[in-house]
């Protein structure tokens, strides 16, 4: 296997808030290969978005990437780069597509100007060349009549069109990696289908890697080749997409899949994961999912599970990997009420 494009080791991004230290990302490691689409799934509070922002070093105080974290990209450690160097990478070698296309665009410039700006900053292109290239990119993202659309302002475009503009901006410099943070969550389902199609299509054309961050397992299944599941600041499972959906190992992944209603599979009642994600300032010791887990036993409270190897490229942070017989004896989840946890 060739060296990965991006290699993250023991990433810890902590926020020093009044309520205590929020360990939003707490020891995350993974690789992204050249040209691959890696899916990153998790619910709010899992740390998936903070991971994305850390890769571009866009963490604002009181947040901080702790020392000892390594984000190696094209032979450089992003964590220790100078400000000039990191700016040279952002929008150029690594770019980002945000969830809310309206707030990610500047309302007082035309979209063409904003796309062209990327090429002027990073490519040193002349105004004219940059504009021509911007129109070309906008056309490539499927914006009809790109010539005149480029002269419009963000508010004159629909949500789907704005997301296309953001994609054009992100792909302008043919980056090695595009981080897409919930790129279709704010869009309607028919528009989402258009945008996902477009992303997959453009990836084939440009050969960029994509880190697809989402809470939607459906989006993951349709775009990613490999998936990482995050829970409570940690990677809890990682596998090839087919493997993950066929044989989820971590109880959280399993629970997530079972709690989604599926079209065409009618159930009387939905399965639920009881309780909620714990606060990032007080991750429980041992397994962080154990209070909500139907299999947990004493070992889960005393021993923080490592990432056990399940199969080729498949790891799971759950002791079930070494005591699989426990899977046959689920119990009602031990959800403990806040405040009486110790009792």
């Amino acid at each position: 296997m060739t060296a990965p494009l991006l290699s993250i080791r023991n990433l810890r991004t902590w926020f020093y808030t009044e309520a205590g230290v929020a360990r939003a990302v707490d020891g995350v490691s993974f690789d992204i290969g050249a040209g691959e689409t890696l899916g990153l799934v998790g619910e709010s509070g899992s740390g998936k978005s903070v991971t994305a922002l850390s890769i571009l070093r866009l963490i604002q105080p009181p947040g901080r990437i702790e020392s000892g974290s390594v984000i190696e990209f094209e032979g450089k450690d992003i964590v220790t780069l100078g400000d000039d160097e990191i700016r040279d990478i952002r929008g150029n070698r690594i770019s980002m597509i945000f969830q809310e296309p309206m707030s990610a665009l500047n309302p007082v410039f035309t979209v063409g100007d904003q796309v062209a700006e990327v090429a002027r900053v990073h490519g040193g292109m002349s105004r004219r060349d940059a504009w021509d290239r911007a129109v070309e990119m906008l056309a490539l993202t499927g914006i009809p009549d790109a010539d005149s659309r480029a002269k419009q302002y963000p508010h004159q475009l629909s949500g789907g069109m704005r997301q296309r503009v953001l994609i054009a901006m992100a792909l302008m410099m043919k980056p090695a990696l595009v981080i897409a943070d919930e790129p279709t969550t704010a869009l309607d389902v028919t528009i989402q289908a258009q945008i996902l199609d477009l992303l997959v299509d453009l990836q084939k054309k440009i050969g960029t890697s994509i880190l697809m961050i989402t809470h939607d397992l459906g989006v993951i299944a349709e775009t990613a080749s490999r998936v990482i599941v995050m829970y409570a600041g940690e990677v809890v499972e990682q596998a090839e997409v087919d493997e993950l959906f066929a044989k989820p190992q971590h109880p959280y992944t399993e629970g997530l899949m079972h709690s989604m209603p599926h079209i065409g599979h009618d159930q009387e009642r939905l399965n639920v994961i009881p309780g909620t994600v714990p606060a990032p300032t007080e991750w429980p010791a041992g397994c962080r999912f154990r209070d909500r887990c139907p299999y947990s036993w004493d070992r889960c409270a005393s021993e923080h599970p490592p990432l056990y190897q399940i199969g080729t490229g498949h790891v799971s942070r759950c002791h079930l990997a070494v005591e699989p017989e426990r899977r046959n004896h689920p119990h009602p989840p031990v959800v403990v009420e806040a405040g009486v946890a110790a009792a």
Binding site: P251, E254, G255, H258, S259, E268, R269, L270, N271, V272, I273, P274, G275, T276, P278, A279, E282, D291, P294, Y295, R327, P330, P332, P333, V335, V336, E337, A338, G339
Partner: peptide
């Protein structure tokens, strides 16, 4: 199927 359809303790959460 270990997954419950009852969420008898849904009230738990971050310490308010």
């Amino acid at each position: 199927m270990p997954w419950q359809t009852q969420d008898f303790a849904a009230a738990s959460g971050p310490t308010p």
